[in-house]
Structure formats: structure tokens, C-alpha cells
């Protein structure tokens, strides 16, 4: 069992994809890179097939919304895990809210299927090439993406509650 470090992982990535990695940091010990969204497939494939790194496991996919980051409002965050080396990696891809598309990783990790659907459901991020990109947890008729920051917690069309007394 070969143990690799964050530094090794970052170097391996930078040797191949230096132009596409916008930033790299290590919050709480997990290597986090910000990646050009169009490079997600090559990078994930590289990490999976690399003889030492072997990131076979996609732990998690989720979305995030930063309304103040102009031009890169929406993000998708991937958590990868290599069981062989017991090392985790976080990849972030940001995109413009007016063109929220990025390639799907379902061809590499089947587990991404529903997680990407969930991300689409809540953030409206369109995963190009996804086999079945439709809402999963919300109703099909919903015409907005509820986890975006512009939507307040409660339904603003409700009339049965008087908010003035609650400071809402």
C-alpha cells in the first residue's frame, strides 16, 4: 500500500493540467482545487486511471451558489476518494449563472447520476450528456431552483402568516 500526500497529488495534477487549475489550497487537510469546468472529465479520468493515485470512488457531488462572484456564480463541488492511498480530493468548478453547463461525469462514476440530478434540481446546473437530467426530489412542475440564494426560506406567496411580528 503506497501512501501519497497532498503535495504529490497536486504535483501530479499540475504536471498535466497546470493551465486549468485556477487555485489550490488545503482547508482542514483536504486538497481543494478550482478547476476549469471543461476539464472535469480529463482530470477525473486521469485521477482514476493513474497507477499510483487511483481515485476510484466519487464520494459526493453538490452545488453551491455565490451571487456575488460575478461570472462564476454557480459551482459544482466533487469529493473524490482513493481507498488505496486513503486520500481525498475536492474539485470545484465554477460557471456563469447565465450559462450553467458542464460535462457530466456519469460515464466514469455511476453514482454521479442521481447526485447530478439533485444538483440540477436545486441549482439548475445543466450536466451535458447526462442520461436522464430531470428533477429528483422536487416536483416536476417546479419552475425555479430553490437552493439558489435569491430564494428565501419560506414561500413568499403565503398569506396565512403575518411576518411583521416575527422579524422575517
Amino acid at each position: 500500500m503506497s501512501e501519497i500526500t497532498n503535495a504529490y497529488l497536486l504535483k501530479a495534477l499540475q504536471d498535466q493540467f497546470a493551465a486549468f487549475i485556477h487555485s489550490a489550497e488545503e482547508p482542514y487537510g483536504m486538497l481543494t482545487i478550482e478547476l476549469d469546468k471543461n476539464q472535469i472529465i480529463p482530470v477525473v479520468t486521469f485521477l482514476k486511471d493513474h497507477p499510483q493515485i487511483q481515485m476510484q470512488f466519487l464520494t459526493d457531488v453538490c452545488g453551491i451558489h455565490y451571487p456575488d462572484h460575478k461570472g462564476k456564480e454557480l459551482g459544482v463541488i466533487y469529493h473524490l476518494h482513493s481507498f488505496v492511498n486513503n486520500i481525498r480530493l475536492r474539485i470545484k468548478c465554477f460557471m456563469d449563472i447565465n450559462n450553467p453547463t458542464l460535462p457530466t461525469v456519469t460515464s466514469i462514476y455511476g453514482s454521479a447520476n442521481w447526485q447530478e440530478r439533485e444538483t440540477f434540481d436545486f441549482y439548475g446546473i445543466i450536466f451535458e450528456g447526462h442520461p436522464n437530467l430531470k428533477r429528483i426530489l422536487n416536483v416536476d412542475e417546479m419552475d425555479y431552483f430553490p437552493m439558489r440564494k435569491e430564494f428565501p426560506l419560506e414561500d413568499q406567496t403565503r398569506t396565512d402568516k403575518d411576518d411583521t411580528y416575527f422579524g422575517r
Binding site: T59, C62, H79, G110, S111, Q115
Partner: peptide
């Protein structure tokens, strides 16, 4: 974000 194990493996 909650990584909910059964949401992921129920796909299979």
C-alpha cells in the same frame, strides 16, 4: 450538504 449513503447506493 449531507452525503446521504442510501441516496447514492439506491441507484443500483
Amino acid at each position: 450538504h449531507f452525503r446521504r449513503p442510501c441516496f447514492i447506493y439506491y441507484q443500483a
